[in-house]
Design a protein around this nucleic acid. Structure first.
Lengths: 193, 193
DNA sequence: CGTCTATTTGAATGTACTCAAAAGCGGTGG
DNA sequence: CCACCGCTTTTGAGTACATTCAAATAGACG
């Protein structure tokens, strides 16, 4: 049950919860093991769960009309990952969510989360804050994508997500930054240690 | 009071409201006239109002560290405009909101909106949907910024926001697309009618 | 060890920027 | 009403940034 500790800590950092709340939260979340490359959410499916990463590394990505992959988000331990729009509006997902490493997520179903909100109202605030943060992070990324060179974006990524950089293959970082793997390779050469 | 009709229609398209609701909504929103170039929200200020554009054209923009302007959003009649993050979190705004033309906005103060939610609960759903749509629009824009050429982005903008393209100066469209005005000019030459 | 995938390298090309200057346009004052 | 001023848009030359394609090299894993 150690994985649940991480979840509880993650929530407790943001909102106040007591022992009763904690046991209600534990019951609402179900563990799900994922193999490397296993897909948690497909385009076209409707997202029914919020998921917390207890162990491993995942990504959400999108295929554009030329079938190029674009990564929207990476996630490691203590992050939340989803196609938020599909979840919120109950419309077909436009993104995939996939495990990069063997992973363990703690999932709460939409209905179950609604009940949780009734029993632990502060959880509603918790998720509202998560969504707000996701929004502002996205806004910053949009601006950076438009105003910075690939090199600047890469260095920014490196400092911001030091750990992720070491855990995911380079071509995925390129797909996150919106550049080709070849060009990322030449950028990296400049900063070779 | 014609400007209020537009607001009511905008809300009524999304949620069911009766005559009583309408008069409550009318009272909550106050008109504010803006001159061309007048700034409605400054970086550093905390956003206290949601605003609906009844007449005119506005933009929200951001200055990056090289003091370049990047436009996040244009808005014309029937659109909502704000620094949403500042409004939601009550933290200092990172963006400016400015009138491009002489404009009229209908503003509702945060406190007033909270009261409105109690009297007309469906309004809470209305704004939640607005925020969700803003999120997904931003996500699409991020992907496009990374995966499309300037020309593709411009053509996309043109079909998506035909009217805005005709109302705002070209250098602002460049600032929206993340390219230089010179380069936008050469792109346009190719499609000269 | 062999196979498959990921990364690197390099040449040629395309996309977008910088800088400078000219042309166009819109409002204001005389 | 027109002339002028300031701002916006266009044009062009030179350069920087990033891609494509092809091939070589390196790593990971059964």
């Amino acid at each position: 049950m150690q994985e649940y500790e991480l979840l509880i800590r993650n929530i407790h950092q943001i909102i106040a919860i007591n022992e009763t709340d904690i046991s209600i939260i534990r019951q609402a979340f179900k563990p799900r093991l994922l193999e490397k490359k296993e897909i948690l959410l497909q385009t076209g499916e409707i997202s029914t769960h919020m998921q917390f990463i207890a162990r491993g590394c995942l990504r959400s990505y999108y295929l554009n009309k030329n079938a190029q992959e674009h990564i929207l988000q990476f996630g490691i331990e203590s992050w939340w990952i989803n196609d938020l729009y599909s979840y919120l509006t109950q419309t077909p997902a436009r993104h995939f969510v996939q495990a990069i490493e063997p992973s363990l997520v703690l999932q709460v179903h939409r209905n179950s989360l609604e009940n949780l909100f009734k029993e632990v109202p502060a959880m509603e605030r918790f998720f509202r804050l998560k969504i707000q943060n996701a929004y502002v992070a996205l806004q910053e990324r949009t601006i950076n994508a438009m105003s910075q060179t690939a090199e600047e974006r890469y260095l920014d990524f490196r400092t911001r997500y030091r750990e992720i950089e070491q855990r995911v293959p380079q071509y995925m970082i390129a797909a996150y930054l919106g550049i080709t793997p070849e060009f990322l390779s030449t950028i990296r050469k400049k900063f070779a240690s």
